[in-house]
Design a protein around this nucleic acid. Structure first.
Lengths: 217, 217, 217, 217
DNA sequence: CATGAATGAGTGTTCATTCAT
DNA sequence: AATGAATGAACACTCATTCAT
């Protein structure tokens, strides 16, 4: 994925982005990337609301003024990060193959969850900001909703392949995503004593049994 | 539960609370209660970080000065709320009876989840602040961790009754709580098209099958 | 005239004024007056656009924070000054008695012009800001327009008493006001070598002859 | 008039102009002209204080760097515009022929006023900046004063031809100019419902009767 | 001759907290 | 016990000007 904002001022608040109408040269792109990296790090360290422009520019080693050469405001930066994230997450949604009720279904889940965790390690802060409704901007919230819908739909599809419509697939998918996201969050952010593999394995099994095995009846 | 801070300055930051060591008269208690109610409401409306002391005092119809007569600072107020919450949550933890692998296990889960949702409706903001690591204060975070451990331990106990130690009960309990909390959050906070009963029912079934039914194998 | 904002947030931009819903005590009123005085002085010294909140608070010897306890922003302060000014100016408009074509018409003009100059000495900066379209706020500009219309209408009335509608009374009134305002501005602000009396006298005569004497024809 | 700065750093602040002492080639002159045109337009649209270098360079389609290749700073640009304006205005001053007390005096006034209005349409912003003391630079203010003196002297001369020194010709001339300038400003800048011809006609008559007709006595 | 990039001092505004009455 | 008033550090954002290429 190319880093950078390839869209206009949509989905990032109303102030047009300073870079909207102009081409960036080498150095410009580098600075922009530095700022986005710094933004991600600051977001991770201090959280969405406590993130200060000052922290970002200090980390990126550019001046205050420079920041506003690339982003119209704080929200614009976070919006750009969110759009990167949305792209990867949406692609992730499409990567879940059908999950069989047999044990190889667990393998597929394991594979996908591993991808999810990797993405989460990269964009966790953004995902959290969405999951936790910390985003105030209309556009940004909308983008988050769209992104999550993509994943939920994908999960629903897999559920429906097995159960048809007799289960409440929508609620199940939501609950499944909730569990996956939070657990990932706990394991990646807090010092929970599981490693990624362990967590992925446990989750895969739980999900498989809870959601993808037909009722014993 | 008696409203009010019955403990010293532990678990609420370092500044001693203005009310530590003095008895409150009738009016004092009333004012304190007004402030805590207002605090809860503001927390719910604006979220942890956006909550302003100004909002609280305006809602409670007291002056800024009065606020600091009862709480040493903003965090102290939230700490007090957190302690109320911790009490109820800890009690909640003890309320989960053994969950059988048969269908009446679902009933017990349903009952307990209904309690959980009720508590969440009341203290959701505080619980979220814990779950989402919005709490900066050491003490407050510790309190949250203790509270969640209480619940997790309770869940682990029920799991162990069924599976012994062959499953990863700790990870399972964490995942279960994660799922329950987030789903409740989504349903109570966002406009998800499920009512409480529906959600509780779906969750109860999912949890039962996923966590409390022994492997078919 | 009582100093202070006796109206709601109309005519001063959209942010509601911090004092809108509360009664000010003695000290509060004093501070507000200090701020308005300082505002006037800063406006006079530096002009509308160059006026800094910092200058105002330094002159008023209050902190930055205090400023925003009384005015929602810079514009709000200037808006308050403008409303004071608008009141006095509108009253001034009503004070011009009929101007006869004989020499005693000059006396009436002289009297009124003296009042005008006095008001100008007090509110010149505000009046200038209006005359010179320095005001960006919709509401403030509207207020200015209304105020000037009051004066122009008054002048038109006097003209029409003499000439009926055969002259272009509207344009004449506008030209007359233009002349009076600018001349007053030059004399009060720059070091022109006329004193008030001299200027008033000359203006009265010029206006009388130019506008209030019927065509010799 | 040749566009360009034909003088040294006098009258434009102290920083020497980047183009002082070097000859401009064809392209250089073109860029400079583009900048001055843009400067004029920006000045007209946003006013003296709100005029941003950024607006100018964007309109002129050159880079920020280029701007400082031709002007030592913002003020230097405006200074250059002011000097163009001063030239035209000074010439305008010399164009007022004697004004007779008879009706053909009105014709001469009408002619001259039409010229004035034309000049104002072109350089109004600069003239306003002078009239309204928006100019902070010593030199620029001095230039304005000189320019206005030229016109005032011309007017005084015409007045003295008729009245000798018995009237206060100096104050009269100042008042006359004040009236003319402001009225022109109002008509050209605001949406007053007069066209140029109408205004010129009214002004000519007013001025003639007010200033150039001897006392009826 | 021209440009895109970078700078940093300056400015308006917010808000938790303290103070005098 | 309560209040209105005051504070000042912190923060987002602007813009004239300089610099490296």
């Amino acid at each position: 994925m190319t880093r950078g904002k390839d869209v206009g001022s949509t989905a990032r608040g109303n102030a047009p982005s300073p870079t909207d109408g102009r081409e960036l040269r080498h150095q410009g792109k580098r600075t922009m990337a530095k700022l986005m990296d710094a933004g991600m790090r600051v977001l991770a360290e201090r959280g969405y609301h406590a993130a200060r422009v000052d922290d970002v520019v200090r980390l990126a080693k550019v001046s205050h003024g420079t920041f506003y050469l690339y982003f119209s405001n704080k929200e614009d930066l976070f919006g750009s990060l969110a759009m990167e994230c949305a792209d990867e997450m949406t692609e992730l949604a499409s990567l879940l193959a059908p999950v069989s009720a047999h044990d190889d279904g667990i393998d597929e889940l394991r594979r996908w969850l591993a991808e999810f965790v990797a993405t989460y390690r990269k964009y966790g802060v953004v995902i959290r900001a969405w999951m936790e409704d910390q985003v105030t901007s209309r556009e940004l919230a909308r983008l988050g909703k769209r992104t999550f819908n993509a994943i939920t739909h994908s999960l629903e599809g897999r559920l429906r392949e097995l159960h048809g419509d007799d289960h409440d697939t929508q609620a199940s998918a939501a609950a499944m995503l909730a569990m996956v996201e939070r657990t990932t969050y706990f394991v990646t952010s807090r010092g929970l004593p599981f490693d990624d593999a362990e967590m992925v394995d446990t989750l895969a099994k739980l999900i498989h049994r809870g959601f993808f095995v037909p009722d014993a009846a």
